[in-house]
Design a protein around this nucleic acid. Structure first.
Lengths: 260, 260
DNA sequence: GCGGCGAAGTGATGAAGATCACACATATTT
DNA sequence: AAATATGTGTGATCTTCATCACTTCGCCGC
């Protein structure tokens, strides 16, 4: 089985710091950051499974490490299996014939990738590329299909997961289809991204760790427009950016801009 | 159980003609048009079920008729259950605070509506409104959840269906997020819409039955832009419109415009 | 046949944002 | 430290569309 690991791009430097302690690793699944209560983090596929299903899954998964910028699968490729993110973030994107790309979402630990195509036996409709050095559990299509047929609760979890994928796709559509300006889209993105960040002294602090180019591809505009909108936000003391850290100084103003 | 039937708008006149013969109605599910081979029409939920599951589903569904323009459920409402389309078309849409609306898709017979919210127990993320007089089977959330727990094959069908929903959402994102012009989006829409139409004498003929306003909401532009692009296409002898009928005269040119 | 109404066509105008073209600023490599 | 990428900030244009403001069309009821 050849897992394509291509184009190891320049390494990012933010895979360290606080969120690194291992919290919950049943049956060898490595997991980082705040999975202190898996019952609440329903987007973590593995943690929502019954003990029996989890053990069965453990037997068919194979974990490997990937460098930053590795392509897990590409749009148009036949689905060989699914990937569960243990560590790191993965961007899910699509590209048109002119090379313009659009990022659907940044997938986080606990999420399954390639579920849809694997389930339906079609080609991947999206491309998955690691944003950071990542650790992923791979399960072949054959094994995975047998697994969900034999484990009723897993099938339901799969359905739930697909539902969430759907939901996030609808959010993207709303964002790029119904907003009136780049500032609105950027504000919306920042509100969404900073939800769950650290609040300190009236200022929200959160890791951004995305280039303007990537943000542009997430909200559907040009790189320059992101730069300009950021400049405007900074000028109006709504946000501040220090390296990979975003500081939301005026959450209310940001939400107003986002029309929330 | 109160099923909200609101705003019966002006009746459309195209629920007649050829596609009306009943072809395949197991256990009382009415179905129209070309469901001659349900094994191939995998988007028809009911037809893909096992005999046992189908019979069980039959016991919990309740079929009713709706006028054109009826709202089945609205964005933000708690999900009470799912609807399976037996006859007619239903538009799935979302609206922003200024009243600008965007149509995700036009659902056809065989599709399930409200699946995601019903499954996850959340509020509906979209609004469903009949485009024509329609016949729908309703299944309460309680019954539906019990049904898919007890019928393993149904659960898998549900997952498949959600996968298709996801897929179509991704298509919308690609269309409105990656295209460069209104003409491209309209061309793409027309190519998609006319796939499966009747070919006769080098000309594709298909029912359009949508206003320019609705098309605008489907491809994310203004009503006037749709009119203008249509005018341009007609001028260049690429398409022709006679009432609710679309004639694609130059499929190749249309596909070129659509960048396919 | 006439009035009314929703839908469709079309011109004029303005604004938003893409694109191009750089300068500058940080990283990374050697 | 020099060299080379890679990312960011900003001005100047240029296009595309949205928007406004009509007219015209087609259909339905009376």
């Amino acid at each position: 089985m050849a897992t394509s690991v291509l184009a190891a791009k320049s390494q990012s430097s933010f895979l360290t710091s606080t969120a690194q302690r291992k919290v919950h690793t049943p049956y060898g699944f490595p997991a980082t950051d705040d999975c202190t209560n898996c019952g609440l983090r329903s987007d973590r596929f593995f943690c929502s499974l019954s003990t029996r299903s989890a053990r069965n899954l453990e037997n068919i998964r194979r974990t490997s490490s990937y460098p930053s910028g590795a392509i897990l699968f590409m749009e148009g490729e036949a689905a060989r299996g699914v990937y569960i993110i243990c560590q790191g973030r993965v961007k899910l994107l699509t590209t048109n014939s002119e090379g313009k790309t659009l990022i659907f979402k940044i997938a986080k630990p606990g999420e399954i990738l390639g579920l849809n195509a694997t389930l339906s036996g079609t080609t991947h409709e999206i491309t998955a590329e690691t944003l950071q050095p990542a650790q992923l559990a791979y399960i072949s299509r054959e094994d995975f299909l047998r697994f969900i047929k034999d484990n009723g609760d897993a099938c339901l979890q799969v359905a739930q997961h697909l539902g969430r994928d759907c939901h996030s796709a609808y959010e993207v559509i709303r964002s790029i289809g119904l907003s009136n300006s780049v500032e609105e889209k950027l504000a919306r993105f920042l509100v969404e991204w900073s939800s769950g960040g650290q609040m300190a002294g009236g200022v929200m602090r959160v890791k951004l760790a995305l280039t303007h180019e990537e943000i542009a591809q997430l909200i559907g505009c040009s790189r320059e427009s992101v730069s300009r909108s950021f400049s405007e936000f900074k000028r109006r003391r709504i946000v501040e950016v220090n390296g990979a850290t975003l500081l939301v100084q005026d959450k209310v103003a940001l939400e107003t801009l986002a029309m929330i």
